[in-house]
């Protein structure tokens, strides 16, 4: 794994911890930095990072704290506190 990929993974962990500790602005900083690194190094973000970050406000989503996850027929809908929805398929 390259340094850039490791940085992205680490920033995802940091963002999750920051959100759990209640510091969502710092989590946004980590998420934006991770996205910037991925962009500069032409890496795709890890699946977990893609599914649990908000495309609209860059928040790291922790279900139960700042996100709701509802299962629908064939897809899950993740709703951020900012109101943005994201969907991903399952099964």
């Amino acid at each position: 794994m390259s340094v850039a990929a490791e940085r992205i993974e680490r920033l995802g962990d940091l963002a999750r911890e920051a959100t759990r500790a209640g510091d969502e602005e710092r989590a946004r900083y980590y998420v934006r930095l991770a996205r910037r690194i991925a962009e500069r190094n032409r890496l795709s973000l890890p699946r977990r990072f893609k599914r649990f970050t908000c495309d609209a406000c860059d928040a790291y989503l922790v279900p139960g704290r700042n996100a709701r996850v509802r299962l629908q027929d064939g897809h899950a809908v993740v709703t951020c506190d900012c109101g943005a929805h994201a969907r991903y398929p399952y099964e």
Binding site: M1, V3, E6, D13
Partner: peptide, 16 residues
């Protein structure tokens, strides 16, 4: 490329 003393200046510093 693990985080080693050699790669530290290029690696993520946040959290350390």
């Amino acid at each position: 490329m693990a985080l080693t003393p050699e790669t530290l200046p290029r690696h993520e510093l946040n959290g350390h």
